[in-house]
Design a protein around this nucleic acid. Structure first.
Lengths: 291, 291
DNA sequence: ATTTTTCTGAAAAAATATTTTCAGAAAATA
DNA sequence: TATTTTCTGAAAATATTTTTTCAGAAAAAT
């Protein structure tokens, strides 16, 4: 052995092929056949699929310089991971003029990873269902956020308000929420934002709303707010970044994607509403001097 | 179970995420983290790398409809083989379960392109200078946003407020702005958000502030708000997406990165402020019944 | 606050996987 | 062909993995 340390299993096999016995060659060929996934299962599975006995597999592993079959398999796993994790320059996204350790690049890394994970996890059916639900003009929409997510709620509200009527932003101060609940009716939708640290008030509002027949659409993080169990639809986003706070970038991405979806779905009406809005802006000429 | 037969492990996890317990969610996230290679090793290895016990892993496998952990692993192996043999996923970032034309994927494409472009043109020196400026406790900070960017301003304000004193959020209604100007003094900072369609009021506020010796830090889009010519520092982000509106995702990214930078810079003080804040939250026990 | 239920991981038990032993088979040598 | 050596796989021995059990911890309900 000695210098085999950093070689792949395939390289070791090729290097030592001449010294392999008949049964070992049969095994080696089977492994190279569908490399490296062929060595994935147990020694029994490998031996059966290649038509040799288990001792032969174990012996060859040692012959190739591994401590035993498990060690060889671990090496195959490592190679597999390297193959899978896309060679696409991870730092494709980086600001090249800043050093690797710069907060901009570390943040960019974290955010793009969050984005990837979130997209991987999202169920398009659920996403479409949310859009359908929010496009239903017969349902009133109530939007609520917490201390940190308030800005998400606000943003969501601002855009939805342009597209349709019957959208209410629940004020941040939970003292006033009873009044909002009064206006929640069966069939209405509550769009809630709740990421860690989850807010008890939001959970309670969700409970009360639920009891009035309101459908809950929840934007939360990967761990899932306690309100998730009440939610008909739950859109989870990854929020971890190198900071003392969590990142809402991916959450905002989902919000904007939902908004774009609703807009596409309701375009005929939205278009005319937007036009009217433009006219109103012009009329009120909000551009007065203020000093 | 029953109809779970042909689903991938990831799909099963997503489908049942709501019914998973705390430890199971932790495990599920770990598995999805580096999917599907994360489930490669023995149940012991998986449990250790995800920080849960082996029984939890075995239990979740059953919960997801498998006979046991080995069956789940076999499924992962199958998926892995499929992944390996398929041509390189062209869009690393995409939700694979949604079609190419789905709004989620089109949006993801646009956002990641925006991110790339933004990072490419950002000047790290300028970025660092902004962080230094905002970390200077001797300067008061005033934050203002427009109709759409209000949520960005709000978010920025919420976080800055935790880290330091002397931070004011200028109310959205420009009628009241004269009062805010009254409190702006030489050496203060005005952090303004202005993306198209640029708001005349913001420009005027910037002008007035400037005339009082206030330094302007501007978050704007790639074209640059008219206020850019007054700004000492201007952070531009790409905002175009397949939607009738512009995307604030990259802007939020910059905001969060700046906040993380300031936080790192002022950590000693920020840490104690955050601790005090926690205590205040506990004391005021905002969790009262409201109905 | 108390009770009940659910969840979780340590440890034991069961099931598998891996290695070793060893006898017969195959190949090499004489 | 006989003899020796090497190889191979069945079976036993050993090690590891996986599942089950169970008691305490955490969460939910009362």
């Amino acid at each position: 052995m000695g210098t085999n340390q950093n070689l792949t299993v395939a390289e070791r096999i090729r290097k030592q092929f001449d010294s392999l016995t008949r049964a070992e060659r049969q095994l080696a060929n089977a492994i190279l056949e569908d490399y490296p996934v062929s060595g994935l299962g147990s020694i029994t599975a490998v031996s059966e699929s290649s038509g040799v006995s288990t001792p032969t597999v174990a012996r060859m592993a040692k012959k190739l310089g591994f401590g035993g079959f498990p060690q060889m398999q671990a090496q195959l796993h490592t190679e597999l991971k390297a193959t899978i994790s896309s060679p696409i320059a991870k730092h494709d996204l980086w600001s090249e003029s800043a050093p690797d350790t710069h907060i901009l690049n570390r943040f960019a890394d974290a955010v793009s990873e969050n984005m990837r994970q979130t997209l991987k996890q999202i169920d398009p059916e659920e996403f479409n269902a949310v859009i359908d639900l929010l496009s239903d003009q017969k349902r009133e929409i109530h939007v609520v956020g917490g201390r940190i997510t308030r800005s998400m709620a606000d943003n969501f509200f601002t855009h939805m308000q342009v597209m349709r009527s019957g959208v209410t932003l629940v004020a941040p101060n939970s003292n006033t929420w009873a009044h909002y609940v009064l206006n929640m009716n069966e069939g209405d939708i509550l769009v809630a934002f709740d990421i860690r640290r989850y807010e008890h008030d939001i959970l309670r509002l969700a409970e009360v709303a639920k009891s009035r027949g309101v459908t809950l659409v929840l934007f939360t993080d990967q761990w899932g707010s306690p309100a998730a169990k009440l939610a008909t639809y739950s859109l989870n986003s990854r929020i971890e970044v190198p900071s003392a706070w969590d990142s809402l970038v991916v959450t905002l991405f989902l919000v904007e994607a939902v908004i774009a979806g609703v807009q596409a779905q309701t375009w005929d009406e939205t278009k005319s509403r937007m036009k009217t809005l433009e006219e109103l802006f012009d009329q009120t000429k909000m551009f007065k001097k203020f000093i």
